[in-house]
């Protein structure tokens, strides 16, 4: 292989790993929208909390990275119960815009609370896999990045299985397609809300715990996460998990290629350019389900 081909493959690999992070973030966002029709602006903050909880679990409790990450994911997933209880469930009969504002309020609360409690100084989650390099021929990935991709893919498979095969998953799908019909079939809508938020927050936190060691973390990192999540969700279609998968990987690869062959500045812009094109061409996203009016 000549050097140009190697570079191209390497960039695509970099992009797929970043894309898998976007997928993990966007899946929770799309799940909450698809099942509950809620646009959750606070979603990125659960990514931030996942990263910070991992950091503090390993620093204060002396846990190893993997245990700390699992603990953080579980803790943030449980916070999903609280968030739903106070910020979403009580407003379920209100106008969508009220819910939107509520999620915005929650986002500000968590960011500012995070700055107050965690401090503005950047932090680093140390992971034994962060700098370990795995060479695949001339191509290189760190162990951490392989971990991100592997765990991300595994989680999506598990989620797919959960939603397709388990009774709870079927109840979520039923609620997504017709909430009133679901209630009249015996679906406990409140439990569906709770489980959906637990899954979404857990996935976001897991992404935070996984990506943490590849960069620095700071309390405003959630706004980055939610922005990437929304780009993917618009690309793949709100409410579609397959769309989030394809949209996330696509965005990752496109950003890597644009960053690698044009410039990083363009890579940021390309996400928004994609959104505009997709919205003009297919307003429901590439894989989106059109929403019923009202």
């Amino acid at each position: 292989m000549d050097i140009e081909t190697i570079l191209l493959i390497q960039q695509i690999m970099n992009g797929l790993v970043n894309g898998m992070t976007y997928v993990l973030i966007a899946t929770g966002l799309t799940l909450v929208f698809g099942v509950l029709h809620i646009i959750n602006f606070a979603h990125g903050e659960f990514y931030m909390l996942g990263a910070f909880f991992t950091f503090f679990a390993s620093k204060l409790l002396g846990l190893d990275y993997v245990t700390a990450g699992i603990l953080a994911t579980v803790a943030v997933a449980s916070l999903g119960i609280v968030a739903n209880r106070f910020f979403f469930w009580p407003l379920r009969r209100e106008h969508e815009f009220t819910l939107l504002l509520s999620s915005l309020g929650l986002a500000l609360l968590l960011t500012n609370g995070g700055e107050l409690i965690f401090g503005a100084d950047p932090k680093y989650i140390s992971s034994p896999f962060a700098d370990g390099i795995v060479a695949m021929g001339p191509m290189i990935l760190t162990q951490q990045r392989i971990l991100i991709f592997g765990v991300g893919a595994l989680m999506l498979l598990l989620l797919y299985f959960f939603i397709q095969k388990t009774t709870m998953g079927k109840m979520m799908r039923a609620t997504a397609q017709d909430a009133e019909g679901a209630a009249l079939t015996g679906v406990d809508i409140r439990r569906v809300y709770t489980v959906t938020f637990v899954l979404a927050c857990g996935l976001a936190a897991l992404a935070g715990a996984l990506v943490g060691p590849t960069a620095m973390i700071y309390p405003t990192v959630g706004s980055w996460a939610v922005l990437k999540g929304f780009i993917v969700v618009v690309l793949g279609g709100l409410g579609s998990i397959v769309g989030a998968l394809i949209g996330g990987l696509t965005l990752g690869v496109v950003e890597a290629l644009v960053g690698g062959y044009i410039s990083l500045g363009f890579a940021q812009a390309v996400g928004f350019a994609i959104i505009i094109v997709v919205l003009l061409w297919r307003p429901n996203g590439l894989f989106g389900v059109a929403r019923r009016a009202g």
């Binding site: 009774t167 079927k170 799908r173 039923a174 397609q177 019909g181 009249l184 079939t185 679906v187």
Partner: peptide, 14 residues
């Protein structure tokens, strides 16, 4: 108020 993307069997199960 059926779930249009779900199968007959899934409706019966739910």
């Amino acid at each position: 108020l059926l779930f249009k993307d779900m199968s007959v069997a899934e409706h019966i199960e739910l």
